[in-house]
Design a binder for these strands. Structure first.
Lengths: 78, 78
DNA sequence: CGTGATTTGTTCGTATGTATC
DNA sequence: CGATACATACGAACAAATCAC
């Protein structure tokens, strides 16, 4: 799924994959994306890496995080 | 009781201690082991750490968990 | 029957240390 | 040296189910 040896950092690869899922409609507005633990398990990475991927998606404006609740797809795709 | 600075992770140390208690008969089959809160207090660790110790014991097949009830010593010690 | 205490389940926030490139 | 990545650990909050009363 991800390539640890590629030129692109793993956390960027994961963010890109999630972004594709959002754009494909697999992840819908106001619906949660997988938790950090789920991402950690799905991609076989450390939690910090999953976290950084979500951070990146936040920076891109694609998702928003509610503490102790989860991270959700933004209403308006920028 | 546990050594946070040792080479062995704290959650492994705790799991090992519980395992010894099971093998010593202090904790008996079908009887509950201490709750996550109790372990947290006894060993002076965060709940997440106590939880990971219990997870490890489950992986070892020494205990089983019943949601909202507790974690119990397995009938058959593998 | 309802209410509160207990217990596990889940999630995010943060920090530290190690290793690699 | 900085960026990446992993593993560990603490904290905090909320949910949901069970049980004693």
């Amino acid at each position: 799924m991800v390539d640890p040896d590629g030129p692109t950092p793993v956390y960027v690869q994961i963010a890109d994959i999630i972004q594709l899922r959002i754009e494909a409609g697999e992840l819908q507005p106001n619906r949660p994306i997988p938790s950090e633990l789920a991402l950690q398990q799905e991609f076989g990475v450390a939690r910090g890496t999953a976290r950084r991927a979500v951070e990146l998606l936040r920076d891109r404006g694609l998702v928003f995080t509610v503490p102790q609740r989860g991270t959700f797809v933004s209403q308006q795709t920028p």
